[in-house]
Structure formats: C-alpha cells, structure tokens
C-alpha cells in the first residue's frame, strides 16, 4: 500500500467517510475510491455499491483480474431517544457490538450522567440535537420514550435521513397511532415502513434486559441482512 493511500484512508476514517481500497491481487496495484465515486468500470461500480451497502469486503473477478475490494465504512453509531431503563441495559451491548452511542432526552431527570456514565448525553429536544449528529447509513435511531412529543420529532428526522435502522418502542396500538400522526406530516406508508414497531425481534422478551436483547438482535439483523430480512 502506497503511503498516500494509507494517509487518505486514515483521514477518511477520522471524517466518518466510507471509502474502499481496491487491490489487484496479481500486480499488487491499488486504487482508493470514495463511496459514490465512479471508478470508470461499470462492473466494479456495481460491486462497490453492493459492498458498501452490505459492509462487505470481498474478492471478486473483474475483467479477468482477481481484485480485493476492502470496504472501510465509518464506525457504527446508535442514537437512543429516551434515557429510559431499557436504554441503560442496551448501551453496554451496543458498545460491545461496536456502536458509538448517543442518548437524547429533554427531560432533565432522566438524562443524568449518573444514570448514563458512558455515553454522550444530549438534554435538548431531538429536532434540535439530531441535525448536528451526522446521521448516516451507518447509524441506527431508536425512539424509546413512549412520548409522542419526544419520539415523533425524532422519527420524523430519522425518516428523512439515510440511517439504516429506525425502531420505536410501543405496542401495536401505540404504533398504529404513531403512523397516523406521521402520515399527517406527509409521510407515505412505504417510507414509514422503515420504522420497526413494535421495536425488537419477537423473542417473547420480558423485562428491560430481554427487551434490550431483542432490540440489539434486530439492529444487527438489519445491519447484516438488510432491511428486507
């Protein structure tokens, strides 16, 4: 690897930009390609698009040459709206799975450093905080407050972003009400289908720790298998 490619790679990681290094395995020659940048080869572009979306580095054949596509996606990020008990159980799991976690809750009594010692805490409203958080295709947004005043603006913002996962806590009935309110804001059913509600995999979870496990399982499932899984 040439020194300038390594330098650009390190800068991209710092700036949370997705980039790929494509190596010709026979010659050792390498190219640095940013996410969305055209490589000049249609087959390689298609392979790059899929690899970025699935966070999938791989060796493939292009034009008779064996090439390795090394995807360097930005680190995963989780934005939890609601400094609630489930969040307390979820945060250590998300950290272990490589997520950088931020918690948003405008209710001062909830978002305290004592309750959440290891995360970035924001005690303003989601619509004020979220635009500054750089929500990208490596971000999961979780609305956990049960309170439409707080959850709805967060979901509205999430639906307008390219985040890979959106989940909202609450029963089917709560979720149906939520979808009604969001559609009044002009969201189509297809767009709102991005919201996982009720949040989490159906594993019969009881109590906050098990609910946190079901949520974490679903976030990983969507990350690794895609939204259709």
């Amino acid at each position: 690897m040439k020194a300038d490619i390594l330098q650009r790679l390190l800068e991209a990681r710092k700036g949370r930009r997705g980039v790929a290094v494509v190596s010709d395995l026979a010659s050792g020659e390498q190219r640095f390609i940013a996410r969305g940048e055209a490589s000049g080869d249609a087959a390689l572009d298609a392979a790059l698009d899929e690899s970025f979306a699935r966070d999938h580095s791989r060796t493939i054949e292009i034009g008779g040459a064996e090439v390795f596509i090394h995807i360097h996606n930005p680190p995963l990020k989780m934005i939890i709206v609601g400094a609630v008990h489930v969040a307390q159980d979820l945060i250590p799991m998300a950290g272990a799975a490589g997520f950088d976690v931020s918690v948003i809750d405008p209710r001062g009594a909830f978002a305290t450093a004592e309750r959440f010692p290891q995360v970035t805490l924001h005690s303003d409203w989601p619509d004020e905080v979220m635009p500054g958080l750089g929500i990208d295709h490596r971000t999961a947004v979780l609305a956990l407050t049960h309170d439409p005043k707080i959850d709805d603006p967060a979901l509205t913002h999430a639906l307008r972003s390219e985040c890979f996962y959106i989940g909202a806590l609450g029963s089917r009935k709560t979720h149906a009400g939520r979808l009604e309110r969001l559609s009044a804001h002009g969201f189509e059913a297809e767009t709102m289908a991005r919201i996982h509600g009720p949040i989490g995999l159906d594993i019969g979870a009881r109590g906050t720790a098990e609910i946190a496990i079901s949520i974490m399982g679903q976030v990983v499932q969507v990350l690794r298998r895609g939204p259709g899984a």
Partner: peptide, 29 residues
C-alpha cells in the same frame, strides 16, 4: 468503542513515520 480494526492502520502509519519497514496482511477470502 472503536471497531476492532481501528488502530491497526494507525499503528502501521506510526511505525512507517518512525522510519521502519512495515507490511500489511489482510484477510481477503
């Protein structure tokens, strides 16, 4: 919280900057 791969390239760059020869091995398949 940095993912497992983070820090390795930084280490490689640091060794290189110190004037040492460095190689990088990557699992490709």
């Amino acid at each position: 919280l940095m993912d497992a791969q983070h820090g390795i390239l930084e280490q490689a760059a640091e060794w290189r900057a110190a004037g040492r020869d460095v190689a990088l091995a990557t699992v490709i398949q």
